[in-house]
Design a binder for these strands. Structure first.
Lengths: 206, 206
DNA sequence: CATTATTCTGAGCAATGACTCAGCTCTTCG
DNA sequence: CGAAGAGCTGAGTCATTGCTCAGAATAATG
């Protein structure tokens, strides 16, 4: 009975340890393959090959290619939120220190999977569901930073919401560029300049 | 698939007006199709269809799909450089005014093709040559801004090259986001904040 | 060990997409 | 006009990719 239901949910639930391992191997391989080839050229066959699993097995745990990316995205987001909340909330101090923590956080968060955001943007026009997931995450993060700014006495900007949005995006994309490119400018220096820029902005000097 | 050396140069040089028009139609169509479907799903057949030209004609002017994007990218960047040089060089004045001009410029420049950067990122892993082309032009732009900064007396940063790179990228990506999203924050406000951030950074206040 | 449930395999199918080519139409120019 | 070359056409080729399925291999159970 060929059912028409297609979602991002897994097709089969693993019941043996062996199966769980296979699932993980597939996800790990997918992360590498997507990072290397992009989404379109990161074929399911390549993923299966890298995971040393047959394509048949792959399709026992994921109903389609999108579902693999979706799972990757969700995991990435969850992990990011966790470490962020963990570190920033409990670090008072100078404004510059706070900003630096923010930047460091972005760096750490993308170190393990530096290409994921690019991949998700690539796949976005193909899957509205995926797009929504990403957007939801973004809003949460901005809100979190907004609260952080609200609590710091040295922050002097016109509107906290706008400021939060601006710096979250700026820090995120610059970090991405930093990690993706093997650049002439050393990482530490660029990071320092980024911190300076954001800090001066938030402090509102004239 | 990307094994042998592939060129981005046009295959045939148009000698009649008719041919030149065809070429333009193809490029315009490509811009729309890529923006709507992304690079991978933006097929050459779709482009030809939209341009109301046969695929055969398309391949008379472009040796392959990458070349179309490359041409689009080069034009985009060149146009940016031109208007930039035109407007900025002859506008002395406060640092803030200069930065504002820079931002306005980016906004104008992306109004007609807000998705191009995303598309280029998507296509990048597929073609090293394309990546190089973009990078080369990007460097030119950074160099231009660097010179601009060098000439302004109020600019006080550690390293002009790093600063130029940082602000070019920051202004560019923020503009992109601004234009792509229908956002809650109005354009003018966001623009103002962006100008403030960059200005304060360049002025180097403490 | 036999039986059943779970997991895994990979050749192959259907669809799609980049690109070609043989021949047509249109422009130019003597 | 008419020949030659520039420009255009689109059915078709070849390669690739997402995904299926019939059955083999492995593990759990009686």
């Amino acid at each position: 009975m060929p059912s028409a239901e297609r979602r991002l949910q897994p097709r089969r639930k693993p019941r043996q340890v062996r199966a769980e391992l296979t699932r993980e191997r597939i996800l790990t391989a997918a992360a590498h393959v997507f990072a290397e080839y992009g989404y379109a050229a990161g074929t399911t066959n390549r993923i299966a090959e890298r995971a040393r699993v047959s394509i048949g097995s792959l399709y026992q745990y994921f109903p389609n290619k999108d579902a693999i990316l979706a799972e990757l995205a969700v995991r990435h987001i969850d992990r990011g939120m966790w470490t962020q909340a963990d570190r920033l909330d409990l670090s008072p101090g100078s404004l510059e220190a706070m900003v630096r923590a923010l930047v460091r956080d972005a760096v750490d968060n993308h170190r393990d999977d530096p290409q994921l955001l690019r991949i998700m943007m690539e796949a976005a026009p193909l899957s509205q569901e995926l797009l929504d997931t990403i957007d939801r995450h973004g809003r949460k993060r901005v809100a979190q930073v907004r609260d952080l700014l609200a609590r710091h006495p040295d922050v002097r900007v016109r509107d906290l919401g706008t400021a939060a949005e601006l710096i979250v995006f700026t820090v995120e994309t610059n970090t991405h560029k930093l990690m993706a490119d093997p650049r002439a400018v050393p990482v530490e220096i660029f990071e320092g300049e980024l911190v300076d820029m954001v800090t001066r902005y938030l402090r509102g000097d004239r």
